[in-house]
C-alpha cells in the first residue's frame, strides 16, 4: 500500500488535533468552563475530520461518502469555535 504525502500530512494534523484536544480537555477539567469544553469538542471533531480526510489509507473504497462526512464535520468544527466565542461565563456569586 502506497501512502501519499498529503495523506501523511493529514494524519499528522489529526494527531496534532488530538493532542490539542487532550490539552483543552485538561484545561476544561481544571477550570470547568463551558467555553473550554466547546473548544475541546472542536479539536476532537477536527481530529476525526483530519483522520477521515486521510481516510483512503484506512477505508480505500469509501470515496464520496467520506467527503460528505468531512464537509459536515468541517462545519461542526467552525460552529463549535463560533459557539465558544459567543459563550459568556456567569460569575456564580457575583463577586
Amino acid at each position: 500500500m502506497f501512502i501519499e504525502t498529503d495523506e501523511i500530512i493529514q494524519l499528522m494534523s489529526s494527531l496534532l488535533a488530538l493532542f490539542l484536544f487532550v490539552i483543552s480537555f485538561l484545561a476544561y477539567l481544571r477550570e470547568r468552563r463551558k467555553k473550554l469544553f466547546l473548544l475541546s469538542a472542536a479539536f476532537f471533531v477536527y481530529s476525526i475530520m483530519a483522520f477521515l480526510d486521510a481516510g483512503e489509507i484506512v477505508f480505500p473504497s469509501a470515496g464520496d461518502y467520506l467527503e460528505i462526512w468531512g464537509s459536515l464535520l468541517n462545519f461542526v468544527v467552525l460552529a463549535l469555535f463560533f459557539l465558544s466565542m459567543i459563550t459568556k461565563e456567569s460569575d456564580e456569586n457575583g463577586i
Binding site: 483543552s24 484545561a27 473550554l36 473548544l39
Partner: peptide, 8 residues
Amino acid sequence: VDGFIEMW
C-alpha cells in the same frame, strides 16, 4: 494547560 487557558 495554563498557556491554552490564557490564550482563549
